[in-house]
Computed example of a mutant assay.
Amino acid sequence: MAQQLMRSAVVVGTGLIGTSIALALRDQGITPYLIDENPEAARTAAGLGAGVVGPPRAPVDLAVIAVPPQHVAASLREHQSGGLAHDFTDVSSVKVRPQEEAAELGCDLVRFVGGHPMAGRERSGPLAAQVDLFRGRPWVLTPTESAGDRAVGRTRALAELCGARPVVMDAAQHDRAVALVSHTPHLIASLLSGRLLHGEESQLQLAGQGLRDATRIAGGDADLWTHILSSNAAAVAEVLTDLVLDLDAAVDALRELAKAPSEPGPAGLSHLRDVLVRGTRGRGLIQEGSSGGLSGVAVGT
């Protein structure tokens, strides 16, 4: 059914996500056209077997706009005006602002459906791409009220062809969700990693796998993540505000315990235990829902 809805495609942007999509489509018998403002990136993706470099001679069924959030609307307008495809989607990890900007630019929202595959890696670029990157992962669709059935169907087909599970959400609901499960965790990992710059060599030599696990995603592209976080600033700030309250309470409890280590106050111990218990419970939620929840860290767009 998915292949009947979408027989041809073009991928605009051959970074980690775009190239992984192209590889997955190629694996399903669809050879995507590859477009990138950096010709070398497109040639690298083609060399991996992801498709053929250059625009199609006639409009394809679906164009996948795989560029950072701040460029989605302009890219959509450019390629809709140029007749690149009949329908369009994007894979940006932020949905509200790009859709608002697309409307302001006069893009045809009947032929556009926002999308976001909940998968990624801490590495970027076409050489980091994987054909199975999206397999079993949620792929969020955020159609506007004006989105046409054909565009929705083709975007859903794209997710299915890539082995993902389509999930329809409101754009604002999506942005709040990724603020919690993707964007804020990346920022926290970066803040924690930044503290290591103040560590002594003898301290850093003691770092184990736990710290490496907690800071792994901080290795992402700083410029890309600056744009992602700024595009979803309000939702991330809301999560961080609550987190700061928790941190302040934890600091107060630790300072209370530090003043009298031989006679620890019951309030301090109770609060610390509560922090750890809630952490265990929260971690259990994403372990239980790892095959279907929005717990993937999105990297690339």
Score class of each variant (00 low, 15 high):
residue 184 T to S: 13
residue 17 I to G: 09
residue 244 V to K: 09
residue 30 I to H: 06
residue 264 P to V: 05
residue 153 G to Y: 06
residue 133 L to H: 04
residue 178 V to Q: 06
residue 237 A to D: 11
residue 201 E to I: 05
residue 207 A to F: 10
residue 133 L to A: 09
residue 71 H to Y: 14
residue 215 T to C: 10
residue 127 L to D: 11
residue 229 L to H: 11
residue 186 H to A: 03
residue 208 G to P: 02
residue 34 L to H: 01
residue 85 A to R: 11
residue 214 A to I: 03
residue 199 G to R: 12
residue 93 S to F: 05
residue 158 L to H: 00
residue 192 L to V: 15
residue 271 H to W: 13
residue 254 L to A: 13
residue 31 T to S: 14
residue 279 G to N: 08
residue 72 V to Y: 01
residue 155 T to P: 04
residue 160 E to A: 07
residue 143 P to I: 08
residue 110 V to F: 14
residue 70 Q to M: 11
residue 67 V to W: 01
residue 68 P to F: 02
residue 196 L to S: 11
residue 180 L to G: 04
residue 267 A to Q: 15
residue 245 L to Q: 11
residue 160 E to S: 07
residue 16 L to Q: 09
residue 1 M to K: 11
residue 184 T to A: 15
residue 225 W to I: 05
residue 182 S to I: 12
residue 72 V to G: 09
residue 299 V to F: 12
residue 135 R to K: 13
residue 138 P to Q: 04
residue 42 A to F: 03
residue 271 H to E: 03
residue 4 Q to R: 09
residue 193 S to C: 07
residue 176 R to H: 12
residue 279 G to E: 03
residue 99 Q to V: 09
residue 261 P to M: 03
residue 170 D to R: 12
residue 257 L to Y: 07
residue 92 S to D: 06
residue 43 R to S: 07
residue 4 Q to C: 01
residue 172 A to V: 10
residue 194 G to F: 03
residue 241 T to V: 00
residue 77 R to V: 11
residue 179 A to N: 11
